[in-house]
Simulated scan of single mutants.
Amino acid sequence: MELREQNPFFESAALNGAGLAAAASLILYGAMLLMPGVSGILLGCLGCCGLLFAPGLLTTRQHIATFGENIELGRGAVIGFTAGAVFGVVFSFMDVIWGLLGVNTSALFLDNLTTFIETYGDNEALDNIEDARRQQEETGFSVLGLLFSVSMMGIINMITGMAGTAIFKKKEGEL
């Protein structure tokens, strides 16, 4: 059997995960570029976090609507994890695209975070940010960072995929 026949959700999970990751990256870093400082980091982080939970829910919803049948909790978890893992990969590699456009996303984020903490935080937090900046400059893109992103996004969306099985469950008369 083909992968497509065994996992009919795979294409929608990949498309949803990739599309939402690209949108999250554009919202996060676009807001910081257009509105540097406190408002940029707040708007960017809120928009990005909102999209972070969507791949599992959206893909589960599409699967139930397409096939017209309820799915088990475990199937929702697999669908959500797949969509979240794709989200993590694409979001990580969006840094490469931003780099081609001349934007260092790590420096941009840390600059905005520094402005935020200068406004609302304390000096100890600023010291930690400077340590993080030095460490990031030494390491750059890492496979461990990619694996962390894939696993965290996968786990978060595994949970939202399971939630989607209950939220979008069709009643007996609707099937």
Rank of each mutant, 00 (worst) to 15 (best):
R4G: 09
V89F: 11
A107R: 10
T66D: 14
M158Q: 10
V89L: 11
G173Q: 10
E124D: 11
I71Q: 05
I71D: 11
N112A: 09
L34Y: 00
E130H: 03
D95G: 03
F116I: 03
G40P: 10
L73I: 13
A166S: 06
P55T: 01
P55L: 04
G173V: 13
D127C: 00
L34A: 11
A166K: 08
L20V: 06
G30R: 07
I64L: 09
S106E: 13
L20S: 00
F109D: 12
K171T: 07
G74V: 12
A163S: 08
V38I: 15
K169W: 02
I79D: 05
V89T: 13
T119R: 11
E137Y: 02
F87R: 01
I71Y: 07
L144A: 05
T66K: 15
G74T: 10
C49K: 05
Y29H: 14
G164D: 04
L51R: 01
E69N: 12
F10V: 15
D122T: 02
T114W: 00
M162E: 03
N104V: 06
S142N: 03
S149T: 10
R61C: 12
M152R: 14
E174M: 08
I117G: 00
A54G: 00
L146N: 03
L73G: 12
G19H: 13
A23I: 15
S25G: 09
A77I: 12
E137C: 06
F91T: 10
T160C: 04
M162Q: 05
L43Q: 06
C48D: 07
Y29M: 11
F168Y: 13
I155E: 08
G88N: 04
M158S: 09
L108M: 15
A163M: 14
N112Y: 12
I97T: 07
S39W: 07
D111S: 15
